[in-house]
Nucleic acid binder design. Structure first.
Lengths: 218, 218
DNA sequence: TCTGAACGCGTGACCATGTCACATACAGGC
DNA sequence: GCCTGTATGTGACATGGTCACGCGTTCAGA
């Protein structure tokens, strides 16, 4: 089956679809780095399966998750480079094994010019990410660690279990591991979670939910 | 003279230009609020003269400058609403008296579909803002207040003089007024600036420059 | 001209968070 | 069982945000 059926590209005319199908998807193992800060954009990336996390890295090594790219979504960092001639600012890491399509620059630009549906896909992705970034900014600038940590736990949770080290959680919320350690300790003492090596079990989802949605005015 | 000559819209075909010229620019007095968080987008805004500052406001009242819109640029927050059906997240304030063109939604969408030059303008603006936001995020997440304050002073400076209250500076760098007060005091004791009610005079631009460009690894 | 309110600024106390330097505990290969 | 790397706990400290003030200036209106 053609990969263009997987992607949420909307309705595309036949010629666009044929063009896109000439791009062969690539397998990417978990943990591999798709691009680093300072590199030039190679093409437009669409994730078909798996998940790609894009981080911003501070000079001291601290990281923060800019956004995750889910299947059917594109990594708009790559678009920036193609449209604005700017290099990457973030670092993209395959969070799981991935299947991705890399649309070369030329094809991308002509699709943008000729195919309204494709344009819409890109634009919407753009707008959505921009909103995300604003929310993120709002969080980093105004929200307490407690709230962000609760939010991260709820996002990563599967059946009440979060499989992530404290370091991973810290990177997600743009904080330091030690801080996560202390907060989790606090959560545990309150009976909201239970922790174990590499995992957190959620015990009181309602409270965490309330925490995550708190606007900071305690 | 038609306003379309002012704006950095690039080369537009005659019909697009005529269409745009049917939009009559509006005068906006300094200090007035163009839109607030939660409002729906009315149209696509292009600034012809003056400056518009877009702030994100935290629940406790603290603010941070998302970006400034200079003449010839568009306020991409308005674009988000038009493309992604999302409401504003920020608050736009006219920093000076402004002249703006408000392109209604319908016209905007048809220009986007039909006029490659216009599309390019919007896309580039989009990409640029996105980059800005990343830089901002990087600053907020990783940079010291000292560096951000130095940067803000250099941005606002005119002939070595910054006309801004500490509250304005604080909003610019997403910090609190008291913090700015103490930092400026420090700067003064080092002989880098001199302060007076509502203004800061720069005495050692080189040092401030170095501070602003420091990556945090002191 | 006086006066009260709004504004701009300085400051001390305190809390939250980030940083650094460790110690400890566990897992998996040998 | 023993090493080595990884995950975690913790104390001490620096930075920055918050709160609660006080003090001087500006300015409109009585």
């Amino acid at each position: 089956m053609a990969w263009t059926d997987h992607a949420a590209l909307g309705d595309l005319p036949e010629r666009a679809r044929r063009l896109l199908d000439s791009v062969h998807p690539v397998d990417v193992p978990a943990g591999s780095v798709l691009f680093r800060p300072g590199e030039a954009a190679q093409g437009f990336v669409v994730v078909l399966s798996g998940r790609i996390d894009v981080f911003l890295t501070g000079p001291n090594g601290r990281e923060i998750l800019l956004y995750s790219v889910a299947p059917g979504q594109s990594c708009i960092q790559t678009t920036l480079g193609l449209l604005g001639e700017e290099d990457y600012a973030g670092e993209a890491v395959a969070a799981t094994a991935c299947h991705v399509a890399l649309i070369p620059k030329g094809m991308f630009l002509s699709l943008m010019d000729d195919v309204p549906g494709f344009r819409g896909f890109v634009f919407t992705a753009f707008a959505t990410r921009m909103q995300n970034m604003m929310h993120l900014l709002e969080m980093v600038a105004f929200q307490k660690i407690e709230c962000r940590l609760a939010g991260a736990l709820l996002e990563l949770e599967e059946d009440g279990l979060v499989m992530a080290t404290q370091a991973v959680l810290a990177a997600r919320i743009g904080s330091a591991r030690e801080v996560v350690s202390r907060r989790l300790d606090h959560f545990t003492r309150q009976g909201w979670v239970e922790t174990d090596r590499g995992q957190v079990r959620i015990r009181d989802r309602a409270t965490l939910q309330r925490l995550a949605e708190m606007d900071g005015t305690d």
